[in-house]
Nucleic acid binder design. Sequence first.
DNA 1: AATGAATGAGAATTCATTCAT
DNA 2: TATGAATGAATTCTCATTCAT
Lengths: 211, 211, 211, 211
Amino acid sequence: MKTETITPQSQETIRNILDTAAQIFAEVGFAGARVDEIARRANVNKAAIYYHIGSKEALYAQVLQEIFSDLSERIVQHVQEAQMPEEKLRVYIRQIGQTLQTRPQLAAIMMREIASGAQHLPDVIMQTLVQMISILTTILKQGEEAGVFTPSIPLMIHFMIVGQFIFLRTSKHLISQHQEAVPESFKSTHQTISETIVEEVENLVLRAVKK
Amino acid sequence: MKTETITPQSQETIRNILDTAAQIFAEVGFAGARVDEIARRANVNKAAIYYHIGSKEALYAQVLQEIFSDLSERIVQHVQEAQMPEEKLRVYIRQIGQTLQTRPQLAAIMMREIASGAQHLPDVIMQTLVQMISILTTILKQGEEAGVFTPSIPLMIHFMIVGQFIFLRTSKHLISQHQEAVPESFKSTHQTISETIVEEVENLVLRAVKK
Amino acid sequence: MKTETITPQSQETIRNILDTAAQIFAEVGFAGARVDEIARRANVNKAAIYYHIGSKEALYAQVLQEIFSDLSERIVQHVQEAQMPEEKLRVYIRQIGQTLQTRPQLAAIMMREIASGAQHLPDVIMQTLVQMISILTTILKQGEEAGVFTPSIPLMIHFMIVGQFIFLRTSKHLISQHQEAVPESFKSTHQTISETIVEEVENLVLRAVKK
Amino acid sequence: MKTETITPQSQETIRNILDTAAQIFAEVGFAGARVDEIARRANVNKAAIYYHIGSKEALYAQVLQEIFSDLSERIVQHVQEAQMPEEKLRVYIRQIGQTLQTRPQLAAIMMREIASGAQHLPDVIMQTLVQMISILTTILKQGEEAGVFTPSIPLMIHFMIVGQFIFLRTSKHLISQHQEAVPESFKSTHQTISETIVEEVENLVLRAVKK
DNA sequence: AATGAATGAGAATTCATTCAT
DNA sequence: TATGAATGAATTCTCATTCAT
């Protein structure tokens, strides 16, 4: 059994590239990103990116892949563990919230992707999304049947959840950018939200779907 | 008596440029947009864009300006006309929904802007946003005092509203792009939503804030 | 006899254009000059330049023409009036010096022209130059024959004269541009020169050619 | 033993670019120069110029820098070696003359620079010029004190020297350009000058300052 | 005569990608 | 693996000139 000869330090180089790329794609999007800049900020020679990854598009796909890979798994697993529809829905929301907190770039990248009609989203990722909606649909249906949820459209609920998290996360940036234009009260409120954000979203969504 | 010579022909050219630019910026974002392409699709000489507008950045700023200019006005005006907090909130939501339906590009552009920390958003526009939040805050407070709303955080409610609309609108594209990965049921549902979308969002939000 | 119907106010427009153009060509050269800029600074519509003059090249030629037209005449005339070779040479120098003082742009334009091999100099102007050299040659020969001048090469003497004036004039700008790098003493000296510059050059050249 | 690998190939590319650029800037000036043309004539990809140098302006600055760097050193060194003021002055003139013969572009570039008020001349170069004037001032003062020179203004003497060389050099071009307008005698004379040009200038200047 | 608008042909600069070592 | 250099294809922007009024 090979145990560790797989990759000496190139592993580190690749890690570096992917992390930096994720950051930059989040900041300026695919079209706005510059391979030169990614190389510079990753402390890596530009040619190394091509050696290891292949192309800017491949780099982007890999970044997305990485970011999405565990989200779906986590949801499937944790939702199963919960019993009641209400609790399952909370788990669903919580997993999304936590993923977005762990991978802060995901929000920005997703927003751009959705804005441009997901032209760059590999099908693998689309399937992940569809799978998530299916899970949510099941949860909501169970809730309806159990008489605790009012009828609602799963897709809208999903976007309600994702939208909340994404907007709140990305808007932090937005607010700090325009300090002058934002009143004091606004800022402190925002601060408070960030800390209990997941719980807030849970409550809001639950209120919206509960009978 | 000539009553219609008011518009020198250049007005039309500029209109053309701005509309086409709005469309393209919505499709591919600022970095992805090509001035050549804008000129081509606007049936305008590229140099004319520089003659009338000045630069790609100025073009983008002007597009944003235009798109935002009337939203805030509409909200201020219509909200005043409504009486009860509940109705005021519905009006607030409806105006946003209608603006996004009239100017379909707004949603996509906003998503990108928020994703990149609103680096391009002029302060004028930020102020518009802040003003909108203030109005919403007043509505929610009145509702609380009247005993019809449960306490909630205005900023989150705002993003809940905007997020819903934006996501639903932009996701139409997304779904049609990835036909293969999307199940039949999913699509028809989506179709249905689009038609009653504004009403749906109203209900969802109202349920979320009502006592 | 027509007395004044020749040109109403277009005369003024043309004057404006030519003067501004002379200034700008002196500042940045032919290639560096922008027709837009000339129009702007002349308070004239750009199309008017084309209406009145025809093209950028034509504008340049006309500017040169104007500037050179009277120089040669003045020299021919005044040199004849002087008697002794020494006095004739002084007159020659003085006329050049005065022309350059009246038309400050001439120096800069000439320097550029010479630097680029006079590609833009119309033959008319070349002939003027050649004529001037002939006059100088005659003066110097007469001086030699009269035993007051030492043999010298007319072309060099001409360049000595013109070079002095042109360099001194253009270098004023140069010195004021780089205040920090220029010592105090340097500046005041320069000031003094400017006032008696013509006389200085006369003496210098006379000393150089006298026996 | 390899003794010549010191120069990585990029050195050659840069050398090529700078030499070609110097040539072209001399021919047509900064504004008239085309980066495309420089690349073409240097047998270098246009992007390589940007890779190595950065911009057209940077290229120009570097060309100026290079051309001036050794002139000042040479003068300082050689003038010291001479004993008598008269000989020192000849050395001063000779060094300038030889530099202009080695770097034929210098003359043309300097003329344009002076014509446009030395907007592009970095202060480093201005300091070089000022230093040269200081040296000349010292020489002339010593000559006066020794009773061999008549009082004169150093700046004018300097421009007399430089002007002569520059004009003579650049005017070669001028004359060949306008063959038709130039009489036979004129041309042959000019030929003769070129060969003994340095010596001629020395004599001319010496005569002008000697008592 | 005069002008705002328009335009085609550049011109500087950028950028993803490849190459030689 | 890694890297400095090179490159072709854009891409933004400029500019002399023309047009319609």
